[in-house]
């Protein structure tokens, strides 16, 4: 009888612990300020306001951690998230040098270039730059275009081994640079021009205050 009560006691403690570990998301908000050195580029400041703590993917093993969400710039809605480094096709299978997979989700807002509102925008060149609290560049490069189970996006595995409060700068080039064309006739064309949105240069979304610690994935 005594043994049974001990086992019951310890089991109850274990279950309580598991329950505690599994609960308790709390909302937070985070605001950012930005400085943009490229005067010719259009710049916006990203803000996070996250009632839902993390964007949980369809599968349990795939949880996107937001950096900033739903930043609108010209015709684009931009969000940045990260999660575990992922093997990718075409020689990018080795994930050992990397700490995370950084992803920019870029969808269309209302526009006259023919993109459906909410649709992923293809043919973009998207550069990223992660800036440490001391102003040094911790990582930079150009995102690759790829598809995950939740759809296409721009992303890259990156090495970011140190915890810090980082800034993130995402620079979006015109699709025209990659040879994307528009119908120009009145009958079939969407009616707009890339110059309307990219006439002043690349679009830059900057976010400061990304409190990052490397995660065990």
């Amino acid at each position: 009888m005594k043994k049974r009560s001990i086992v019951t006691l310890v089991t109850a403690a274990a279950i309580a612990t598991l329950a505690l570990a599994g609960c308790g998301n709390s909302a937070t908000s985070n605001e950012a300020t930005t400085n943009n050195e490229a005067a010719s580029n259009e710049t916006t400041t990203a803000t996070t306001s996250t009632d839902a703590a993390v964007g949980v993917g369809e599968a349990a093993g795939f949880t996107e951690i937001p950096i900033f969400e739903d930043e609108e710039i010209e015709l684009l809605n931009v969000s940045a998230v990260y999660f575990q480094p992922v093997p990718m096709s075409n020689g990018n299978e080795d994930i050992t040098p990397f700490n995370l997979h950084l992803e920019a989700d870029i969808s269309a807002l209302s526009n006259d270039l023919g993109y459906g509102v909410g649709d992923w925008v293809p043919y973009l060149t998207v550069d990223y730059k992660v800036i440490g609290s001391d102003g040094s560049t911790a990582a930079e490069g150009t995102f690759m275009t790829m598809s995950a189970s939740d759809g296409p996006h721009y992303g890259a595995n990156i090495a970011l081994p140190n915890a810090d409060t980082y800034g993130l700068e995402i620079t979006i080039h015109s699709p025209e640079e990659n040879g994307y064309l528009l119908h120009t006739d009145a009958e079939t064309g969407p009616g707009g021009s890339f110059d309307t949105y990219f006439g002043n240069g690349n679009l830059v979304v900057s976010y400061e205050g990304w409190e990052y610690t490397p995660q065990e994935w």
Binding site: A14, T17, L18, L20, A21, A59, G61, F62, T63
Partner: peptide
């Protein structure tokens, strides 16, 4: 599989 979210499991393990 895609059933394991390592961070959540680590929290459970640490709690226990």
């Amino acid at each position: 599989t895609s059933r394991i979210d390592t961070s959540w499991w680590n929290l459970r393990i640490f709690g226990l």
